[in-house]
Design a binder for these strands. Structure first.
Lengths: 239, 239, 239, 239
DNA sequence: AATGAATGAGACTTCATTCAT
DNA sequence: GATGAATGAAGTCTCATTCAT
């Protein structure tokens, strides 16, 4: 699993607009003359990808920059050409890893037509496919573990990732309430309860249960959606 | 010094209140001759308590033994009289923090009479009062963050804490299904979905949302229980 | 030339009051039981002495802490028990090196009786004996070289050392003018011109001329004093 | 690339003004074809000029080649086209900075007619105007700071700069003694005492006193010359 | 000739661990 | 039992130097 595959692992249709053109061009360009400069443009992403792997696996503090460098196939000094500090690398990793994920989800939502319940269910599984099943699955654990020591990063993650994801869910819920499909519940709390099990699924897979218990994600998420939809359904409209 | 021997050195029926009392008595007792030996017995607990505080706040790697020692009012060397390594201290901390918590929950369950739904709801709030509102609240985050680097500890936590807690919930669910109160759902998955939001509540409070958003635990847990109970209720028995 | 000789190289009668008693006790104590703790008190001075040697010889940046530690016979980590950073060590070195020097000169002055010219001449040679001929001779060069990068230290040196030395000279000059021995010259400028050749003598010995030319300090300072005294003398009083 | 070949590549009768003119012409000249080759010849001087600025300001060790390159508007690699190492650059800088200074002083002396006292005074102020008031003022401090780590350079500076300057002063003194204007003093020592305050004036301005005290160079040098001339004057010839 | 990306040795600094007292 | 001074391995970060383009 090399760094470049990481780039390609993003939903192809989704991030075309969002991801900077350069990293996309990286693969389509045909001529060799610009390889050096193109390489330079691609480096930060490659390094961040290597770092993501290790951060997710070992945590921030336990990851040595030597290992990141070795994993990316560069020298330790090269890391500092692109990132001023280990912390800066950490920030870049999180941003590279999560922003495309969100953009994809937002586009998915924007294009979807269907009942609120359907959207909720499909969004959940979309999320799982695009995050839970990839190496991005480790990011929530990473954030949980390190946000205490990196308040700045925690704020960024909260503002740009969690709030954005919550807004998505809030819109679905509001639509369902509007249409009479859902009961009138407190939106914030409802959002919390939709998100929590999904996050926890990621976390379990990457930490406590990693080697102890195999969680059947499909069944887990199916039941979760059932519960949510049933729990929010209006009386005359049992999902 | 294996984990279980350490656990067994705790007062068997003890909970947090009892442990506190002992360390308080330590200073009010009038007999001076016994103070030394009493103190000796209490030391590991005092040290672990100081370490818990710091581990939970800063994480394992970012906590220096100097700080633990200073916080406990002893010299750094003294730590090594009771724990062979930082890792050993970590194990002791986790074990000391969680075992009493569980014992208390089990006793609570054993004594409770009522419908499955009632028990579920009360158990949830009991848990919250005894864990979420105390310093133990940080333990889940700690476990999530460090279990990857301490597989042995993750296993212990999984086997002795999570499984024990899951057994508790499994018993309640089984009772509800038996009595016709709940539908026949997959037990393991159902347990996961009951636990996840509670864990996540702990985690959020200690990490990402710490400084960003105040979660109303009461409303959150109430809605969670509503959803669970409604979601599991049999057709003719809408909770 | 070991560190302890450094301590003893200070004028014995002069610094008895100034230097902290501990470093003096270091040598007079007879019992062995307290060696450990006494050692601790003495350590900072020993380390600073070792550092002085190297700083003076190689400059601040070119001196490695490994070498300082090795030279003091301790491990690198030990340095950090006493000094928070290389810069802190530098500060300590300067302060340890120069303050006693000044105190000695002040006491010398206070006890001296004689004409202004005599005092001037004797003070100059006193200074030379106590500074120019010891390893402290390198401090002026050190300060000149590094003060640009350590403005804080430059200020300290200026305020506590140079101003103090200048005050000494200013007092002598003022006395001479008062008594009609010296002409009425601008004090500040006069002080500059008395100091400059003395400083430069130190500097030359430690830098440019170190291996090229041997300056006869005795002749140099004698002529310097002659020039100064003759230059300042009133018409009817040719020195 | 040995020192002397480098020196010889400079315009022989040149001084600072001439060198400046060449680099200015570089840009105003209309002929574009020559610009490339002209530029090539000028490069080393431009690079050394940029380096001088930084060396003087920060010292040798604290100056990064990145900054030198950036300041000269070239890439870091280009530095190595002209100088084999940082040390080689340092040598070039010193040589380029001081040789023209000396040549100018020698020419000034050669053309001067007047009493020894007059020459001494005017030479001093000439020196100050051409060195103390320009960026060259920092060179003495630089030499003092680094000569310990660059013995070879110290020797060059001593042999080519100091000795040459001393010869100049020695000639003036000898002339004064010959004519009966000055007393018969030891020449070497006398030269030292003439130079020292001038050097120290440079040094003070660039280091310890930089931000603390403003020295009135005019008054300082005037008094210095007065003292020297008065001090050396024969009995019947009070300056 | 010129670039600037890449290197890697080496610097400062931290901290878990040990041990003489 | 308790101390705390001492250690040294290992980490992050810097920067002079090289070399493919």
């Amino acid at each position: 699993m090399n760094p470049s595959s990481f780039v390609n692992s993003f939903p192809s249709g989704a991030n075309a607009a969002a991801a900077d053109a350069s990293s996309v061009n990286l693969r389509v360009g045909g001529d060799r003359r610009k390889q050096r400069s193109r390489r330079k443009e691609a480096r930060p992403s490659e390094l961040a990808a290597a770092a993501l792997e290790l951060f997710v696996e070992r945590g921030f503090a336990a990851t040595r920059l030597d290992d990141v460098a070795a994993s990316a196939g560069v020298s330790k000094g090269t890391l500092y050409l692109y990132f001023n500090s280990k912390e800066a690398l950490f920030k870049a990793v999180v941003q590279e890893a999560i922003v495309p994920e969100l953009i994809a989800a937002e586009q998915f939502m924007a294009n979807h037509r269907g009942s609120a319940a359907e959207v909720l269910r499909e969004l959940t599984f979309f999320w799982w496919r695009h995050s839970g099943a990839t190496r991005l699955a480790g990011v929530p654990k990473l954030m949980i573990a390190e946000s205490g020591n990196f308040p700045e990063l925690a704020k960024y993650y909260h503002d740009h990732v969690m709030m954005r994801g919550r807004a998505l869910l809030g819109a679905v819920l509001a639509r369902g309430i509007e249409s009479g499909e859902f009961r009138r519940v407190d939106l914030e709390t409802a959002i919390d309860l939709i998100i929590a099990p999904v996050m926890m699924l990621h976390v379990w897979r990457y930490s406590v249960c990693a080697h102890e218990r195999e969680i059947d994600a499909e069944a887990y998420l199916t039941m979760h959606c059932d519960m949510i939809i049933r729990g929010f359904a209006t009386e005359g409209n049992p999902a």
